[in-house]
Write a protein that binds this DNA or RNA. Sequence first.
DNA 1: AAGTGGTCTAGACCACTCT
DNA 2: GAGTGGTCTAGACCACTTG
Lengths: 259, 259
Amino acid sequence: MPGMSGSPRSTADDLVRAAGLDAPSFSPLYRQIKSLIIAKLQSGEWKAGELIPSELDLAKRFGVSQGTVRKAVDEMAAENMLVRRQGRGTFVATHAEQKVQYRFLRLMPDEGSESLERTLLDCRRQRAPAAIAKALQMRTGDAMVEVRRLLSSKGEPVVLDDIWLPGDLFKGLTTERLNLHRGPFYGLFETEFGVQMIRAEEKIRAVAADAQSAALLQVPVGAPLLSVERLSFTYGDKAVELRRGLYSTATHFYRNELN
Amino acid sequence: MPGMSGSPRSTADDLVRAAGLDAPSFSPLYRQIKSLIIAKLQSGEWKAGELIPSELDLAKRFGVSQGTVRKAVDEMAAENMLVRRQGRGTFVATHAEQKVQYRFLRLMPDEGSESLERTLLDCRRQRAPAAIAKALQMRTGDAMVEVRRLLSSKGEPVVLDDIWLPGDLFKGLTTERLNLHRGPFYGLFETEFGVQMIRAEEKIRAVAADAQSAALLQVPVGAPLLSVERLSFTYGDKAVELRRGLYSTATHFYRNELN
DNA sequence: AAGTGGTCTAGACCACTCT
DNA sequence: GAGTGGTCTAGACCACTTG
């Protein structure tokens, strides 16, 4: 169908409509394909860590050329939603089996590399106060899970995290289940609850340690700490986690790259 | 030359060699084209803010297809080195005439938008101490320019910056020249000294305000401040600026996006 | 109307991985 | 060897900007 610009586009439009998506119909074909792929991820048809169909296969399914699929996948790979591996195929990104664990943690040790030990301090179900409900796009008083944990490097506590999750998405989340699990929470969220964290926004401030935080992080009361407030999103820009980390930056720093 | 994969590649290789670059010869053609474009930027042949030749023009010059030039330009646009404008052309990115001023400053006000006022506190030429020389890839004792300045929002001081620059690159930099200039320093560095900041790395910590910083930022001594150490690079990964900012985060926060 | 970047296609060959 | 993503080409048309 070379030169017939109308035909393949309407085919994809039909697919978009069939999927019940309200993607803007004026968007280029490759973005519509991208939306279709995201829909597959969102529905759980292609799960975290799994191999998705080849570009040629996808092109046939969607009735477009390989180049168009390629451009859609390119964008998603650039956003870390997919991972391409030459000769093997394209995989759904995951926090679980990843080389670099803690994909969203930008804290680096001043010297050497490290492995972090996790200590679970608390896990309870609550009713969401207004501030947290608002951030998580839910109503005040809705069910919510609250987790508190510590990360330590070589026995020294470095990060104190308070984590808030929507109760409906994380129904069976208990202290035992968290303790059984190895590795980052985000891996557990994927495999046990089907919740993929794909993007986050952080607000960073310098704060003084209060009595409780100081005790847990083993620093003097009033010591300067990095406060990192993170709001994480799944597919469709749905907020699914609010996290407030207090980082002790005596032996570590928060690394960022600008361009 | 369709199908003759050897021929166009060797053409570009010749161009790379002719330009005296040691780009790895195994790299794909579009990366070699990218290197050639970067060489044009580095040499000052195409200056910040200027229009570069069209894709078709570049393709003819380099003896490759438009698609290959496109892929090179795509990468550079993704890295904010070039800016594409449909119907107009491709421009060299600039810190000077940009909508979003302070491209590298991630500090946001809690409420509303803002315009920052600049106050120059100091500008002097020094010999570089070991720590700064090392970061800027120069020798201890080499000529260095040191600048201190304050950024304020609605009269309230928010950022205290100490800036260190290699003396040889910034020969005529004086207090008067800095005071004459409107807008971010990076704009001045481009237009007056031909130094383009294209990338930076930041190390962020929480620190306690010392007496001098506290006075300048109008906070109590010991108040927690965000310490942002930024190392900026030009073309060829050459470090050309070290900056240490102290951010008061009572009414502002450092914003970051993760994916 | 002419020129630019943006999208889409089709087909070729290369580089890599696995069986 | 078969299958995958990666590169490169060539040509068409679209969307946007400017003279």
